[in-house]
Design a binder for these strands. Structure first.
Lengths: 201, 201
DNA sequence: GTGTCAATTGACACAGTGTCAAGTGACACG
DNA sequence: CGTGTCACTTGACACTGTGTCAATTGACAC
């Protein structure tokens, strides 16, 4: 682990992200990444034991660059549950486009690769934690709409925010990030916030 | 195209569906299908020019067995837009589980195979037509909620009903078909039906 | 000048798809 | 009875992409 070593590793990760972004996370081979890094395909295996491990490392690398904690701060500091919901969806709406390509690459080997499935699953459960916190905040305010239990509401919000929904609305339907955020926010408020509370805002 | 020929073709399609269902649409190889049919792998290529073509044929074969038109009749016969919305989601909620495995297999080669992508895309656009008809019916009744245009509402409903949402709620969260249908219906009504109309039902 | 270490080259195993050629076995038709 | 046809079989092989291995290079360090 000399500094040379770390440097090449970083260059690989940078090249991986760049290549994935250029291709929308589709059809990127080890040879492509090697070429983009400017090293031989085999050298990739000196740093990462498999394609999946490289993809996972690239995901973590990207996370580190993105200051997730800092971006989550506003929603965590929200004074009401409704505010927290709004800010969380706003965070998510800006976050997804930045992790989409790497995520897509990971998702598309999910079926054949246990490690990739587990890594993606982890991320999705972290997102679920955010959803749970939002729902808990609503519940604390007495603002969780009627038939919902906290766990069912968490699952429902979690589902609404799934990446394929974002993918479909933006890629297939051409919605902007702001349209996405606006609709998801409205939808979530209508679903999860008691009507008295919405009316009184 | 003798009757012998058709018979084997049918046996292949049956075996394909069975195999896909058993594996949830994941990791099914040509060899597996051949074995399940009781013929050699190469014989598959006498009937279908590629794996993708077989998957597509299996999708159509399944469609023919499922009487889609008959099942859609109730929603098409609905007297009001709200009724049509409800019945369409009910149709869809029962339909998805029956096409899920084949659909999954098709979706998972979508990224690498143009034909598979096109075939899946077609199905999704057929479903979109259903969504558009629902939204049009609401609009006709003057029941489409305020900020929505017909095309944006169609896209939104279309997205809500996407297969990955069903997959996530049932497979990951353990929801039943009825829970799925109930929630989707409520969600869609809250989103797309003007509040006066909901209140007056 | 010797050792170390990252990286290179080239060969190869493996899985899965798809192709090809030669052969088999049943059935039909003259 | 013999001949042709047709579905299917067997076995070999090309191709792509991942992952492994062994031998080699070239730089820097002591």
């Amino acid at each position: 682990m000399s500094s040379e070593n770390i440097d090449t590793r970083t260059r690989i990760l940078e090249a991986t992200l760049k290549t994935l972004e250029e291709s929308g996370g589709r059809g990127v081979r080890m040879g492509d990444i090697a070429k983009a890094t400017g090293i031989s395909r085999q050298a990739l295996y000196l740093h990462f034991k498999s394609r999946t491990e490289l993809l996972i490392a690239a995901t973590h690398y990207r996370d580190d660059l993105l200051d997730i904690e800092g971006r989550l701060a506003p929603s965590r500091a929200a004074k009401t549950g409704v505010e927290r919901l709004r800010l969380y969806i706003e965070f998510w709406g800006h976050f997804v486009p930045e992790i989409y390509s790497v995520g897509k690459a990971l998702m598309s080997v999910e079926d054949t690769d246990k490690d990739a499935a587990a890594a993606w699953h982890d991320r999705m459960w972290a997102m679920r934690d955010g959803c749970r916190a939002v729902i808990d905040a609503l519940h604390q305010d007495g603002a969780l709409a009627e038939p919902w239990t906290r766990s069912k509401a968490t699952e429902a919000l979690w589902t609404m925010l799934l990446v394929p929904n974002w993918e479909h609305l933006t890629m297939e339907c051409g919605w902007s990030t702001n349209q996405y955020i606006k609709w998801m926010t409205t939808l979530a408020q209508q679903s999860f916030v008691a009507r008295e509370i919405i009316d009184s805002e």
